[in-house]
Design a binder for these strands. Structure first.
Lengths: 189, 189
DNA sequence: GTCTATACACTGATAGAC
DNA sequence: GTCTATCAGTGTATAGAC
């Protein structure tokens, strides 16, 4: 395993952090250079500009999030238990979702290229959950009246919205409450 | 009824639009002046600066949202029907929530003053829904095992997260799916 | 690949005339 | 109350030397 320390890598990592903290609009090339320790010239040598560097950063963050979700959802347990594990997994709630927060960035939404990794990732997780719900219906753990795609959207939305409520109140409590509420609705009797 | 056309009012209205479209970080005084037709001097005469004007705009938007929610949730019908009405009410889904989106703004979250109206509004709506859920439990419409506060957080989170999913995909479909999924879980048998 | 120099519009605000 | 002038700093990039 190569612990690559390339300048290009440090630029991407610094950009990932700043995008998470301040979003695309709130992240300037100058801030990226300061955090990464790279110089002006380096950045424009490795990337065409801010959108190009941001795209590399967003892609890496999106892939990482997808891998994490796949790991939890593909773990052991019944369908309910796997969804529970996804909802209860450790999260830095007050920092928000590094992928979901980008949807509130006007410049990201205005660019199909920047939006694509965000859309693809959330969509992939949604499909995974939908499949698990369908599995649970076959096993009689979930009511046959439930729709896999709909419940998957509800699960993902509860997580994404939980971040909003938590950040509004300055406390993770509302996130946890929303998750517990959803689990109580999903619980097999 | 006074259709006030004051410069101060036009500044606030333009700021509200821009905050909704581009967030706090993405909104510049210059853009506000252009949209409102006011001059530099006017803005700094009526407001101390960008944070002060933004606070006035956020307060007005928050109050408006709260009034809308109270209107729908306080309408006629059973507890389930009132929550259903709230979830299904007409929304400009792709524009996102004008209040919730502010939680992704680093400068808003960093300021207790700017965050307060956001927190207060979401909290008030949450309490309203929690009361309705408790009412539904008393009437036997909801299972006694449900917790009013938790379900209220789930309902609000599903809405806020629905905006995220919709904006990611560029279509309101995911919002609608999440809402339908939640309603199917809440439905009295 | 990295550095420094340069550029020009924009940000957020103050000053003072009218 | 509104207008214009001015300002130091930032945002995003290009040019060219090393």
């Amino acid at each position: 395993m190569s612990t690559s320390e390339s300048t290009s890598d440090r630029l991407i990592e610094s950009t990932r952090e700043l995008l998470w903290e301040r979003g695309y609009v709130g992240t300037s090339p100058k801030a990226i250079l300061e955090r990464s320790g790279a110089g002006q010239g380096s950045m424009y040598h490795h990337f065409k500009g801010k959108p190009d560097l941001a795209l590399a950063a967003i892609r890496r963050t999106a892939e990482e999030l997808r891998a994490t979700a796949e790991g939890v959802l593909g773990g052991p347990g019944t369908p309910y238990e796997r969804i529970e594990a996804y909802l209860l997994r450790d999260r830095d709630v007050l920092r928000g979702c590094p992928v979901g927060r980008l949807t509130m960035d006007p410049d990201v939404i205005a660019s199909d290229k920047l939006r694509a990794p965000v859309d693809d990732t959330l969509d992939a997780i949604r499909e995974l959950i939908a499949g698990i719900v369908e599995e649970g219906k076959e096993q009689g753990q979930f009511a046959p009246s439930l729709d896999g795609e709909e419940i998957a959207a509800t699960v993902l939305a509860t997580v994404q919205g939980g971040y909003v409520l938590a950040r509004a109140s300055g406390s993770p409590a509302a996130f946890d409450a929303g998750v517990r509420g959803l689990l109580s609705l999903l619980a097999p009797r």
